[in-house]
Write a protein that binds this DNA or RNA. Structure first.
Lengths: 113, 113
DNA sequence: AACATGGTTCGATGAGGATCGAACTATTGT
DNA sequence: ACAATAGTTCGATCCTCATCGAACCATGTT
């Protein structure tokens, strides 16, 4: 087995276009906000209360990882996921802070969708 | 003639989802960065060096205006456009600053597309 | 070994949207 | 009045992508 089955771009290779494209889907913004603390979270189908099938959830998390937003760590049968807060702040200072600020969270909460 | 032919949402009605969806297109991010100074800029087909037809340009600018990113002012046959820096910063503090920061501009410049 | 479980991958489907050219509107200039 | 110019709107086309279900894979459990 390889060292890490879940490849992600190095900090310097994170592209703004990829990040913004990734966040054009509201589901992924929700996930981002749920992971705002930068800690590892258990990844389940019903994590982040998205009401989607597990294949869709897998797709979203893969998209986020490949854009450089998250890191995925496999622990046996499960896996944990984490927002790359420090890397992202180094690459695009202030961006994640703004996207996970109170205003952003409130706005997302008021969404009818 | 009406007061303003170019409606835009009021500050409080700017939605994060709309802003992020709007910026999922790299062309619009380029426009955003070109307007970072918050001043009015003359809007032409070849403003912002995008290499698109005028109908496409019109589409992008309409999308940005409707998302609350820009304000359009008509002056006779031409029109001028401006980034709503203050409104956006009031609504989502730090977001525009991060998106128009040096890191963001450099990243966009390195884009091969 | 057999089974259950957590996730990924694949193929199909459907919706959204970027792009263009052409037609249209309105303003300026002659 | 006529022509030129700046932008918008419309319809068509094409491509991307979110979503799902089914098949698959790997790990854990009995």
């Amino acid at each position: 087995m390889g060292a890490n089955e879940y490849p992600m771009p190095s900090t310097g290779d994170i592209r703004l276009a990829d990040v913004l494209h990734c966040l054009s889907d509201p589901s992924r913004v929700k996930i981002l906000i749920s992971l705002a603390d930068g800690e590892f979270h258990r990844k389940t189908v019903d994590s982040f209360s998205l009401n989607v099938q597990k294949s869709t959830m897998s797709h979203h998390l893969r998209t986020m990882r490949e854009a450089g937003l998250t890191e995925t760590r496999m622990t046996g049968r499960d896996c944990d996921i984490r927002l790359r807060v420090a890397d992202l702040d180094a690459r695009f200072p202030g961006l994640i802070a703004a996207l996970t600020s109170e205003s952003a969270v409130n706005d997302l909460a008021n969404d009818r969708s």
